[in-house]
Computed example of a mutant assay.
Amino acid sequence: MHGPASSGWLLVALCAATGTYCLLRMRSRLEEQRRAAGGEALMGFGMAAMAVPAAVFTPPGWAWAAGAVVFGAAGLHALRTVRAGACHLHHLIGTGAMVHMALTMTTAPAHGHAHGPGGSGTPLLTGALLLYFVAYVLVTGVRLVPAAAAEGSGRDLGWRDRPELARACRLSMALAMVAMLPAM
């Protein structure tokens, strides 16, 4: 991702923290939490790697292609499990966005913008993904506040088993995606 270094580092911190929490959720008592946590951890760490400012580290061209392959495989897994619920559909769209960003970065000139004048990106797809993630952020943000009070009352859940924390992780990754897509 190309953009200001300070916002890049904030995205790195946000996505790495989210990925770390999702790794910890893989030890949850609830099967539903464990099932989704691995893919979300992969997304968090992948987004953290993409958000490192280009002025600090520019990965070799093959790294973006490798990322596209990894997220393509994660997308195939999400496609296989999409019938299990809407959360998996969101994972499928998220992995598709990661593949799109990785492939765009393989064709981006070093330290340039892929969607700038003469860029080789796919602005229509980027715009559609951006609209999806903005809508996801708005809907999830509205649902998050009341869910914390309703779901937490009367239940003895550990911090890894809290559904509202899982939603907050998805919300933070969607916010990061809203920041990263236009900066490509």
Rank of each mutant, 00 (worst) to 15 (best):
H2D: 11
G3K: 09
S7V: 13
V12G: 02
L14E: 11
C15G: 03
L23D: 04
M26Y: 09
M26T: 10
R27I: 07
R27F: 06
E31F: 15
E32Y: 04
Q33W: 00
Q33K: 09
A36D: 01
G39N: 02
G39E: 00
M43R: 00
G44N: 04
F45V: 06
F45W: 14
G46P: 01
G46F: 01
A48C: 11
P53T: 05
A54L: 09
A54S: 12
A54T: 13
A63M: 14
A63G: 06
A68Q: 02
V69W: 15
L76P: 01
T81K: 08
V82Y: 01
R83T: 04
G85D: 15
A86D: 10
C87H: 14
L89S: 11
L89A: 15
L89N: 06
L89H: 09
I93C: 05
I93Q: 03
G94R: 00
G94C: 04
A97K: 02
A97I: 03
M101Y: 00
A102C: 14
T104I: 08
G112T: 13
G112I: 08
H115F: 15
G119D: 02
S120N: 10
L124P: 04
T126M: 08
G127V: 07
G127M: 06
L131T: 13
Y132N: 06
V134E: 04
V134G: 03
A135R: 06
P146D: 07
A147M: 15
A147K: 13
A147D: 12
A149F: 11
G158Q: 07
R160N: 13
L165Y: 14
R167C: 05
R167E: 03
C169G: 04
R170A: 03
L171I: 08
A174E: 00
A176H: 02
A179Y: 06
L181E: 10
A183G: 13
A183Y: 07
A183W: 06
